[in-house]
Simulated assay, not measured.
Amino acid sequence: MSRDDELGRAFGLPATDPYVICWRDLDESSTAEELDRLKDWVDWVTSRYDLDHKVVPPCWAAHGAVVEELSALRTLWESCYQDDAAPTDPVAFHRDLTLAMRRLRDWTSMLGCTRTVHRG
């Protein structure tokens, strides 16, 4: 990451390219920071698309598979709205959102978490 990108992130500015996270490579401190950053997007997407706790449980950050799915979805969303994105990219995001919602619902169901209970 360039110095400009680091400064931009420090001030909460969007990255110039889609922001890809390799969660496996992060230390504990970096993981916490990235979860905070992802939380902002998850809050927005769950509100914007009216996703309930059966798709994205309140304890999503405690479940690696759910974090990976949401992080990948955010990266796709960011790439679809870049200056050089194709006009059809937002439609592709919505196609993939439908698939991701199915996977998230399946994982949440297997986890057994509810709106008020975390089973981790």
Rank of each mutant, 00 (worst) to 15 (best):
S2V: 01
S2Q: 04
D4P: 00
D4W: 05
D4H: 05
D4K: 12
D5I: 04
L7T: 04
G8D: 12
G8L: 12
G8W: 06
L13A: 13
P14L: 09
A15I: 02
T16M: 14
T16I: 10
D17G: 05
P18M: 03
Y19S: 13
V20T: 09
V20F: 11
I21F: 07
C22N: 15
W23T: 01
W23I: 01
W23P: 01
R24L: 13
D25S: 15
L26C: 12
D27V: 05
S30A: 15
T31C: 13
T31H: 13
A32I: 08
D36Q: 15
L38F: 07
K39P: 01
D40K: 15
D40F: 08
W41N: 02
W41R: 03
V42S: 08
W44A: 04
V45E: 12
V45K: 13
V45C: 13
V45Q: 14
V45Y: 07
T46V: 05
T46S: 14
S47Y: 12
S47A: 12
D50G: 03
D52S: 10
D52Y: 04
D52E: 10
H53N: 08
K54T: 12
K54G: 08
P57N: 08
P58Y: 10
P58W: 06
W60K: 00
A61W: 08
A62Q: 11
A62W: 02
H63S: 01
A65K: 13
A65H: 10
V66Q: 02
V66T: 11
V67I: 10
V67W: 07
E69W: 01
L70S: 02
L70H: 03
S71W: 02
S71P: 03
L73M: 14
L73N: 03
L73S: 04
R74M: 07
L76C: 04
W77E: 09
W77M: 09
S79V: 00
Q82V: 10
Q82A: 14
D83F: 11
D84R: 14
D84S: 14
A85Y: 02
A86Q: 12
V91D: 13
V91L: 15
F93N: 03
H94I: 00
D96K: 05
D96W: 10
L97K: 05
T98H: 15
L99S: 12
L99E: 11
M101Y: 01
M101N: 07
R102I: 05
R103M: 03
L104Y: 04
R105T: 08
W107V: 11
W107F: 03
T108I: 00
T108E: 02
S109C: 06
S109F: 06
S109I: 00
M110S: 11
M110P: 01
L111S: 03
C113K: 04
C113Q: 06
C113Y: 07
T114E: 07
R115W: 10
R115Q: 12
T116W: 11
T116N: 13
T116D: 15
V117K: 15
V117T: 09
H118L: 05
R119P: 00
G120K: 08
G120R: 15
